[in-house]
């Protein structure tokens, strides 16, 4: 039996191999162009529309908060595109018949696949923030860029880990990649937000345990009162997520769904 040091070094190298292989696979596909383009176009719309037809908000925080209200959607889109088929694709297209009978622990393959989906999604988020930051500097000057933007970026990255985990879980659970992508997308885009809204507005209970509710922190950190949505006074929110609790919820989702996904994948393998 080889030494534990060699064993660990091998596992780390195998994980790295899977990550680089996954990245190579992702970067050859149109999904990269789609998500990276969205990461530039979406914040640009928030610059161009007020520039031509309206006025920019008074403060940089307001502008950033408005522009970044869509990073959540982009995280879900990119996460579904990159993680939606990482496992189900191996089963559906039977590429796993080549990949799994190799001298690697399946744990390292699955974790490598998760990280391989996480990296491009985080890159998409970073591009979105970079574009928004450039716009903020262009409109309000360099002094307008404050630590709220960094805070929001970090919260968005934590949310990215959980969104990718949820989609990864569906990818390991389902047979077909289109089903896993769609279910991952709609659970984050519709199912969880609907549950969250029902709890908030009908049951009037704070849905602190729902990750999409915690995702509100991405813009909440700017502490800007938004009047989106109309109605008297403009705002409907009954609850706002607690910063620390919200982040902890995101991390719990990340770990629970990731390891459930890995367990299911290992159990299922190429049955």
């Amino acid at each position: 039996m080889k030494s534990i040091r060699d064993d660990i070094a091998e596992d780390l190298y195998n994980t790295w191999l899977t990550i680089s292989f996954e990245l190579k696979n992702h970067f050859r596909r149109k999904r990269v162009i789609i998500s990276f383009s969205l990461a530039v176009i979406l914040p640009l719309i928030f610059y161009v529309v007020p520039k031509i037809w309206a006025e920019f908000p008074d403060s940089a925080d307001e502008f950033a908060s408005l522009s970044l209200s869509f990073v959540n959607l982009l995280i879900i889109i990119a996460g579904s595109l990159f993680a939606g088929d990482v496992i189900s694709g191996e089963f559906e297209e039977k590429t796993g018949l080549l990949l799994f009978p190799t001298p690697q622990r399946h744990m390292t393959i699955f974790i490598g696949k998760y990280i391989g989906a996480l990296i491009p999604t985080m890159m998409v988020v970073s591009i979105y923030y970079l574009t928004t930051s450039v716009e903020v500097i262009g409109i309000y000057g360099t002094g307008a860029l404050n630590h709220n933007m960094a805070k929001s970026f970090l919260v968005a990255l934590v949310y990215t880990t959980s969104a990718v985990s949820v989609v990864f879980f569906f990818s390991s659970l389902l047979q077909r990649k289109i089903t896993s992508m769609l279910l991952g997308f709609f659970s984050l885009m519709m199912i969880l937000p609907v549950i969250s809204n029902v709890l908030q507005f009908i049951v009037e209970v704070e849905p602190w345990y729902i990750v999409t509710y915690s995702a509100g922190l991405i813009t909440d950190v700017f502490a800007v009162t938004m009047t989106i949505g109309g109605g008297p006074g403009g705002q409907f929110l009954l609850f706002t997520p607690d910063f620390h609790l919200g982040l902890v919820v995101m991390v719990v989702y990340t770990l629970v769904f990731l390891f459930l996904g890995i367990l299911i994948s290992i159990k299922r393998r190429m049955r």
């Binding site: 190579k24 696979n25 596909r29 297209e93 039977k94 590429t95 018949l97 080549l98 009978p101 190429m270």
Partner: peptide, 11 residues
């Protein structure tokens, strides 16, 4: 070589 495996079409 097991059954008819798929190959990574983008590579």
């Amino acid at each position: 070589l097991i059954g008819v495996p798929g190959v990574y079409s983008y590579l």
